[in-house]
Design a protein around this nucleic acid. Structure first.
Length: 420
RNA sequence: GGAGAGAUGGGUGAGUGGCUUAAACCACAGGUUUGCUAAACCUGCGAAGGAGGUAACUCUUUCCGAGGGUUCGAAUCCCUCUCUCUCCGCCA
């Protein structure tokens, strides 16, 4: 949610920001509605003050057994005006909220301006593309050939975009997640949290998925929604709270399934387990003081990159341009891992600084020098477990169709050298 | 799922229609004094807004779980909902 005072004071800058995100100019309209709201409010409050005065007088007169007909008549008049103004104020406030809640965050000054994915900017890379002396297979070829990955059964049970992992592959998924969690909790200072996978619409509003993106979500009825990412419950842990400054920075992590309807992705990535309705992810979330959020984004990116380095997987980091960035983000880095089977880089993590955009929506503040300040929130994948599994299958495959186990994962996988 | 009891500031907790401008205590912050691992005393201490002023500030509205209603006036009365606790039932 945007700070109305900022829009009031910087309408041109605000519209320019929105333009880079594909929105039309709207500051003028917002300011007008806000003005109408405040005018109604001011007049109403003056009348309320008058009513309160009169009520006190009436109380006093009654206790003295005196006549109150004049005062009662005055209050009756006031009441009608108050009700009319109250309705007007509510109307204008609803209008304002409807607009503000659907506008994306203002990009950071360091976010490159652009409309499409192609305009994302290369930030850095690590490692090299591996050399194969045979034609590397795609992850689902390796999976299906070994009979450990099955899409038909999953489709029979749940429809398209689901998968079943069996035996060693199912266990391998678990090993990858455990490795990530151990690293983030033991070395990177994140506190592991077990969160609900169903949340209320109010919670999704706080992180920005609602009201605008309900089509991307699965609902379970009764105001319960399946989480599209653990970012939603983790970021919301301290909603409607005033934290003490010494609770910051707060760093939390969670390993959860994520559920996405992939409504806009019809026909895209239909083969394999790259784009599923359900996948697992280790998520990182930080709540920090405003001055620290830029540094925290770099730190978080390093935590996510560290996993890929440990796994010796080649990747590049892209800075997303304004048009490709998510709704709540001020700045986002995508980590794209190299997939030799596909001969492509593919997103495996996305780390975003949301500034105070989410904390305003969910009302998370901290107290410093007697002031209540909105925290800055950050989230990042550390990493998407399913896609990490894909990356290992494709990068560590051998000619005979087996897969070598990366050194750091062996202790999570009964010290085996190969997948099967 | 059934029955009962509750929800008041950071915490405990008083408050059954106007004398509450939400008491008191604890915690916290600042200060004074005594003098030493502390005590006593004083002061301050919830949130979100609006109007005025260059400003320190002043005035004012709303908020006692949430939303409606009654009333000149609601923490207090009425209705709906949510959550918590206790007991019973069911259950991994």
């Amino acid at each position: 949610m945007h700070n109305i005072n900022y829009i009031r004071e910087n309408p041109t800058e605000f519209d320019n920001s929105m333009k880079t995100r594909g929105e039309k100019p709207i500051a003028y309209k917002i300011i007008n509605i806000d003005k109408e709201k405040r005018e109604a409010q001011t007049v109403m409050q003056n009348l309320l003050a008058e009513r309160n005065q009169l009520s006190k007088i009436i109380g006093k007169l009654k206790s003295e057994k005196k006549d109150t007909i004049n005062e009662m008549a005055k209050v009756e008049d006031l009441k009608n005006n108050i009700n009319t103004l109250k309705e007007l104020e509510t109307l204008k406030d609803d209008e304002l909220k409807a607009i503000l809640s659907r506008l994306p965050n203002i990009p950071d000054s360091s976010t490159p301006i652009g409309a499409y994915e192609e305009e994302n900017v290369f930030y850095r890379e690590w490692g090299n593309k591996p050399n194969f002396d045979f034609e590397p297979k795609l992850h689902f070829e390796i999976g299906e050939n070994s009979n450990l990955m099955n899409f038909e059964i999953a489709t029979k049970l749940s429809g398209p975009r689901f998968v079943i992992l069996k035996g060693q592959l199912s266990k391998f998924e678990r090993a990858i997640a455990n490795f990530m969690l151990d690293k983030h909790t033991n070395l990177n200072g994140y506190l592991e949290i077990h969160v609900p996978y169903l949340v209320k619409s109010e919670t999704l509003y706080g992180t920005g998925q609602l009201p605008k993106f309900s089509d991307d979500l699965f609902t379970a009825g009764d105001d319960h929604w399946l989480i599209p990412t653990a970012e939603v419950p983790l970021t919301s842990l301290c909603s409607n709270q005033i934290l003490n400054v010494n609770q910051l920075p707060m760093r939390v992590t969670s390993y959860t399934p994520c559920f996405r309807s992939e409504a806009g992705a019809a026909g895209k990535d239909t083969r394999g387990m790259l784009r599923q309705h359900q996948f697992t992810k280790v998520e990182l979330v930080s709540l920090v003081e405003p001055e620290q959020s830029s540094d925290e984004l770099e730190r978080m990116l390093n935590c996510a990159e560290g996993i890929l380095k440990d796994l010796n997987l080649h990747y590049r980091v892209m800075t997303l341009c304004t048009g490709d960035m998510g709704f709540g983000a001020k700045k986002t880095y995508d980590i794209e891992v190299w997939l030799p089977g596909e001969n492509k880089y593919r997103e495996i993590s996305s780390c975003s600084n949301c500034g105070d955009f989410q904390s305003r929506r969910m009302n998370t503040r901290y107290k410093k020098n007697d002031k209540n300040i909105y925290v800055h929130t950050l989230n990042g994948s550390g990493l998407a477990v399913g896609r990490t599994l894909i990356a290992i299958l494709e990068n560590y495959q051998t000619l005979d169709g087996n897969v070598k186990i990366p050194e750091v994962l062996k202790k999570y996988f009964d010290n085996q050298d190969t997948l099967f």
